[in-house]
Simulated assay, not measured.
Amino acid sequence: MHSELEAERERLQAQRRRDLDKLKAESEEELNAERKRLQERKEEQLASLKLEVRQYEKDSAVHLEELDVDSSRCFSCPPLCYMTMGSSGLHKGSTERHPHSLAFPQHRVFAVMGMRQVLRDFVATLDPTYVLPTRKAVKAMAEAKYQQEKEKAKAEVLKVPAVSLTADMWTSLNMDAYLKFPQAHTAENLACVKSSLMEEWGIKSKVTCLVTDGASACGKNLKLRHAVCIAHTLNLVVKKALELTPVLSTIRTKARKLVGYFRSSTTANEKLDLVQEHMRKPKKKLIQEVETRWNSTFQMLERVAELGEPVGAALAALQTDIPALTSDDYNNICACLSILSFS
């Protein structure tokens, strides 16, 4: 009996081994088949992508002059790295081959196509029936819309009985002129341009007053009543009063140095943020005064007074020679702010 049980056990074990070997062989075959299928699919996708690249090169004519752009930015390269639109994959003005032209075909598609072709494909995906207008067509439409709106504005202006003008040669913070005025800013040149604009808009006989910032050249030779901007004059009065008050002038100088230190030092700025966080106060930044910006002195002093406690604590923790504002300084600042805010 014992020998029969042993024989049956050995038979079952042998059968189990055969089943396991068979299952392993089948799994290996299925795995190899799946690997082969994935490899074939990968090769098909790569071949399709290569065909797509060649088709884009053919359809887009792949040349800057034909695309009417100066250069095409390579999105994966540094800002100064540009590609020509040819199929050679060369840097513009260089004999070195573009590093991404072969390694990443999908990247090269975008580099070769140019932004205009990318936009065409995007719009075609949204609406295949829509035809993008050319650059010249867009320019013509913009000019036509400008003339249309200008005529509407002229018609509205012609209905009014009187017109008051304001004039200033505005510039940006970088001193770039908003309106190009190639001539010298003399009274004669300014008057000539203003007279021409009034003629163009048909209001020369309707202008009753010209408001300027106080520059004498702005209103001369036009035979118009000249008024100085009250807001600009008030700003000049406040600035002059601050300069002529020794205590406020000293506080203003100290505040500028204090704000400049915290705005130029990342360590000081981080310390100020940390102190405000520990004091459970909202994180705010100091505001620097800008000479040409109205109210900037008020805003600087107001923020300095608001952050007086956090700024004092931050300065105490930092190793710096920047002098802190005293209690008398803060009292004077508060008194000055109450006057400037008309409270």
Rank of each mutant, 00 (worst) to 15 (best):
R18F: 02
K50L: 03
S3C: 12
E6Y: 05
S27M: 13
L12W: 07
S48A: 14
A14M: 13
K22W: 06
K24A: 12
K42Q: 12
R41L: 07
D21R: 09
L31P: 11
E40H: 00
L12T: 06
R41V: 01
E10Y: 05
R11P: 00
K22L: 12
K24I: 10
A7I: 02
A25P: 06
L5W: 02
E44G: 06
Q15F: 01
A14R: 12
E44N: 06
E28T: 11
R35C: 15
L23Y: 08
L49S: 01
R17T: 08
S48T: 11
K50V: 00
E4A: 09
E10M: 06
A25Q: 10
E4Y: 07
E6K: 13
E40G: 03
R17E: 11
R41K: 04
E40M: 02
R37Q: 02
E29I: 08
Q13A: 05
Q45E: 14
E28K: 12
R35H: 14
E34Y: 01
E43A: 01
S27A: 13
R18V: 04
R11V: 00
R9Q: 08
R11M: 02
R35P: 14
L38E: 11
E29R: 10
E26S: 08
A14T: 12
E34S: 05
E29T: 08
K50D: 00
E34T: 01
Q45Y: 10
L46R: 08
A47Q: 04
Q15H: 02
L31C: 12
R41F: 05
L20Y: 12
K36H: 14
A33S: 10
S27N: 09
L20W: 12
E6T: 10
L38M: 07
E28H: 10
D19F: 07
K36G: 14
